[in-house]
Amino acid sequence: MKKQVLSISAAFALVLAGCGAATPKEEPVKSEETSHNDMQGMDHSSDGSIPEGLTEAVKPTYPVGSEAIIETDHMEGMKGATATIVGAFETAAYSINYTPTDGGEKVLDHKWVVHEEIEDPAPAPLDKGAEVTVLADHMEGMEGAKAEIESVEQTTVYMIDYESTTDGEEVQNHKWVVEDELSEK
């Protein structure tokens, strides 16, 4: 009886294994949306131009010329890199959801666009859920895109230079990281 049960169990296991082998691998479902940190391959440097009306921070935690450790991963290669502070400004920073004007996939939680990079904004800070037109050109297809405010922080924002921890790429004038995304070196 034990041999019969073992034989039936072994046969059943073999059938199941065979079915599994015949089952094709499932392809990952391609999302119609992407998050900010899924945007590898884009140039994250900028020309360093400052939006009109952006106010320099009077006593920023990280003064221009100082260094700090990046504690965020907006893009691959940021987290843990040493940042050199290029600019420090007081403003409202927004995380936004938008569909690129060039037909790309919808971007969720893009961090950060500052108040001065919004077309004809109401007084700062705007509320979560507000619909805006983006003037920033941090990414391809961003400028002119319709966006929804995902989150808001009234804070100091920093423009930084850093070397990517993954490929050694020198990133210059990256816009923006907020104060709590940096730590003392």
Rank of each mutant, 00 (worst) to 15 (best):
L182Y: 06
W112Y: 15
E184K: 12
N97L: 10
V157M: 04
S35L: 08
S7T: 13
E90A: 09
V29K: 06
G77V: 02
S151H: 01
E143P: 01
T91G: 13
E170I: 09
P125Y: 02
S31N: 10
T156F: 10
E32I: 05
D109I: 05
G103D: 08
I160N: 02
V171W: 02
G18F: 12
T61N: 13
S9W: 03
G103K: 07
P121Y: 13
I50Q: 08
E105D: 15
D109G: 12
E170S: 14
T55R: 11
A81E: 02
E169M: 06
E27Q: 13
S7W: 01
T91R: 10
G80I: 01
Q172H: 10
Y158Q: 00
K111S: 12
G103I: 09
S7M: 12
Y94M: 06
M1W: 07
M39F: 05
V157P: 13
A21R: 10
I149T: 10
E105I: 07
A22G: 01
V58H: 05
A83F: 05
P125C: 09
V86W: 05
M39S: 12
K128L: 06
K79V: 03
V58W: 00
P121E: 14
I160R: 00
G141T: 04
T101H: 10
S45V: 09
T156W: 08
V132H: 03
Q154D: 11
T156S: 11
E181H: 03
A21W: 11
M139V: 08
K175V: 09
A83S: 08
S49Q: 12
Q172C: 03
S45M: 08
A124K: 15
V152I: 08
N97V: 09
T23I: 15
V86N: 07
H138T: 02
S46I: 05
K79P: 00
I8F: 10
A13C: 14
K30R: 14
M75C: 04
K25H: 03
D120L: 07
V152D: 00
K3V: 13
A57G: 10
K128S: 08
T133M: 09
I8R: 07
G20T: 11
Y158T: 00
V113R: 00
M42S: 09
V132Q: 02
M78D: 01
P125L: 08
T156R: 08
V29I: 07
G18A: 15
Q40K: 12
G65V: 03
D180E: 05
T99C: 05
V15P: 06
T101Q: 07
A130L: 07
L16Q: 10
H138L: 06
T166M: 06
V64P: 05
A93C: 12
T34C: 11
T99G: 04
E90K: 15
E32L: 12
E119T: 15
K111D: 05
A122D: 15
T156H: 12
K79A: 09
I96W: 03
E119M: 15
F12E: 03
F89C: 04
V5F: 12
